[in-house]
């Protein structure tokens, strides 16, 4: 039997929104029945239009929000957080890196405490061991021990994103849900973080659900790809199938809109702009 770490069946999520002063409150279905399954040690990438429900789905998978409908199964056990609050074993097994790292970090907590807190709550490590682990993790994500005593606001956007990743990795989770985890990173640091995730997956058979709008990242990291549009899954296939023969028009559109760094294309654009300018200036 296939060893699925996480499975979703018919997952839906409804939000209630007020219609303003005179409008009527209404329900919006942000996720409209999604099925997926991820094998141990594999990566499912989720791509799709902004506002298509990716983060909403991620929050269900990471046991943050309860779904409106459908079932979620983690390592073969159905999980219903509305009925049973997940215990700390399950909580530490499933970790999430949020799309908005700033909002998910406590502004009054130093980075060292951000990283050691999960160890304090879930392990019997001594203070010194906790500190060593945290410092080593900082180095792995391209930061340094000198950052240990800084507060979140003292970092750059990309540095905060890496702190969020480091925190999620502290407890050796089984399933890691990453919501646009490298969107603020330059190519080199991004490479370092993606290599780290790949190494951890090889070593510990970590399972990832990875949301990204960067198709070159998805191509590198994914085993399978799920494409969302307006709350629905429009296409789901192996990475190679999606990249060699995208079937759905939305997927095809995504590939077509990807910017290119081709020198000839740049030359043509620059020439076009010069011509426009010359016309406007005359």
């Amino acid at each position: 039997m296939t060893d699925y770490v996480v499975e979703g069946k018919g997952l839906t999520q409804d939000y209630y929104v007020s219609g303003g002063m005179f409008g009527k409150a209404k329900t919006v279905r942000a996720v409209k029945g999604i099925d997926f399954a991820v094998e141990r040690g594999k990566t499912l990438a989720i791509v799709g239009e902004s506002g298509s429900g990716k983060s909403t789905l991620a929050r269900i998978v990471a046991l943050i929000d309860h779904q409106s409908g459908g079932t979620l199964t983690i390592e073969g056990h159905e999980v219903d957080i509305a009925r049973h609050k997940p215990d700390h074993v399950l909580r530490s097994k499933v970790q999430m890196v949020f799309q908005n790292p700033y909002g998910s970090l406590n502004p009054r907590q130093k980075v060292g405490d951000v990283l050691t807190e999960p160890l304090l709550l879930n392990t019997k490590l001594s203070a010194r061991e906790r500190r060593e682990k945290a410092e080593a993790m900082l180095v792995k994500v391209g930061l340094g021990a000198e950052h240990y005593n800084r507060y979140p606001h003292m970092f750059s956007g990309g540095q905060r994103q890496r702190i969020a990743i480091a925190r999620a990795l502290m407890l050796n989770p089984t399933l890691l849900v990453l919501d646009e985890p490298v969107s603020a990173l330059d190519l080199s640091v991004q490479a370092q973080v993606l290599n780290l995730l790949a190494d951890l997956q090889d070593e510990f058979s970590l399972t990832y659900v990875f949301i990204s709008h960067d198709l070159s990242v998805v191509r590198y990291i994914a085993d399978d790809v799920l494409v969302m549009n307006k709350g629905e899954c429009v296409e789901q296939a192996s990475r190679d199938e999606i990249f060699s023969a995208p079937k759905h028009p939305y997927t095809q559109m995504l590939f077509a809109a990807t910017p290119v760094t081709d020198v000839e294309a740049i030359r043509a654009r620059v020439a076009h702009r010069k011509a426009l300018r010359a016309g406007a200036g005359a």
């Binding site: 330059d186 190519l187 080199s188 640091v189 991004q190 490479a191 370092q192 993606l194 290599n195 790949a198 960067d214 070159s216 990242v217 191509r219 590198y220 760094t261």
Partner: peptide
């Protein structure tokens, strides 16, 4: 040059090149 070389398109095998 290093930054441009780190484009994920340029991955060799299963590792991505970093600036270092």
């Amino acid at each position: 040059r290093a930054l441009l070389a780190a484009l994920p398109e340029n991955a060799t095998g299963d590792r991505l090149p970093t600036v270092s």
